[in-house]
């Protein structure tokens, strides 16, 4: 009898998953964990979710920033309507942001990778080149603006002087709306290349030497070794670079701002938003509508990125 009575209990115990001691939290642990989750969560809510939701709400309002919340007038979709139909810089800005994204992907990113591969070869003076190429990333915005003003100035700039253009033949690099975006993109590439190069240099240092040796033993040439072995191994870095390119092109702002505050051929979302919201021109509802559209565009990229990442993890 005693045996049969014991059996179901044993079975129950066996069915229950084995419990490890470590999973049982003491009261103090619980408090620590709660604090560690709650404090960052609070910051995220306060600094990310609250402003984001406030922007969405304000995008349906007309408010100059004066007076209290009771002075906010709710006007439905009027801001969005004005933005898309009655604000000439809007569509050029969307186009320019997308162009910016494509350009960063196609030019400075591969260039940064190429430079990283070359500098990884321990050539003479590699430190000097690294520093020189990375320098633009650390220079202050005011200085960067000034440097490019010296290069691109129509009347007194370096570029027109080097090209030997005089008088009417001079090219108006910053003022001609057909050209100025490209001039600024070149300046952006100057900074972005160094950034990408540094990331890839770090990535290349992390690639196991034995992989290359194995590849060369198998008879792979340099190009094959790089594209078939080294590049795929650097996957984490590639993902980081990808994300950085998307973020940088969506928030592209500073160079355009120092040139002409985002007018005349240099319309770009972040600059238009700043023009409308910051400073004396407080079209807060209108600017918020623009912020919401940027939020939507970024969400598309974020969603795609997260889906890819989760798929990878499942595999």
């Amino acid at each position: 009898m005693t045996v049969t009575q014991d059996k179901p209990a044993e079975r129950r115990a066996a069915r229950r998953p084995p419990r490890r001691r470590g999973h049982r939290l003491t009261g103090r642990d619980r408090a620590v964990v709660t604090a560690m989750v709650a404090v960052p969560a609070l910051f995220v809510v306060l600094l990310v979710w609250f402003p984001a939701i406030a922007s969405v709400l304000l995008s349906f309002a007309s408010w100059s920033g004066f007076g209290g919340i009771e002075d906010i007038e709710w006007i439905g979709l009027e801001n969005y309507e004005n933005l898309t139909t009655n604000y000439p810089p809007f569509w050029p800005a969307i186009r320019h942001n997308l162009l910016w994204l494509a350009f960063l992907f196609l030019v400075p990113t591969p260039l940064g990778l190429l430079l990283a591969v070359l500098l990884d070869k321990e050539i003479r003076g590699t430190r000097f080149y690294q520093t020189a190429l990375y320098l633009p990333v650390v220079l202050s915005l005011a200085l960067v603006g000034f440097i490019w003003q010296l290069v691109y100035s129509r009347d007194q700039g370096l570029l027109n002087a080097v090209l030997g253009l005089e008088g009417e033949a001079r090219i108006d690099w910053y003022g001609d709306p057909e050209i100025n975006l490209w001039a600024v993109l070149v300046a952006t590439a100057w900074r972005h290349t160094g950034y990408v190069m540094l990331l890839y240099l770090a990535g290349l240092k992390g690639v196991d030497r034995s992989l290359r040796e194995a590849a060369s033993v198998d008879g792979a040439n340099q190009a094959q070794t790089f594209f078939r072995v080294v590049f795929p191994v650097m996957r984490p870095i590639n993902v980081i670079v990808l994300v950085i390119v998307v973020i940088e092109s969506l928030r592209a702002f500073d160079l355009v701002w120092v040139v002409n505050r985002g007018t005349n051929g240099l319309e770009i979302m972040a600059a238009l938003l700043t023009q409308n919201v910051v400073g004396e021109a407080s079209r807060i509802g209108f600017g918020s509508a623009m912020a919401v559209i940027m939020l939507l565009i970024s969400s598309v990229f974020i969603t795609v990125y997260l889906r890819v990442m989760f798929k990878e993890e499942k595999r």
Binding site: V278, A281, A291
Partner: peptide, 29 residues
């Protein structure tokens, strides 16, 4: 003119800041 200086040279996190600005003003009253 005021608008000539009314616009700041902002940092790179302008997007977030723009959104923050929009959010923060609600706290003004």
């Amino acid at each position: 003119s005021p608008s000539a200086v009314g616009m700041p040279v902002l940092g790179r996190r302008s997007v977030l800041r723009g959104m923050l600005a929009a959010g923060a003003v609600t706290a003004l009253p």
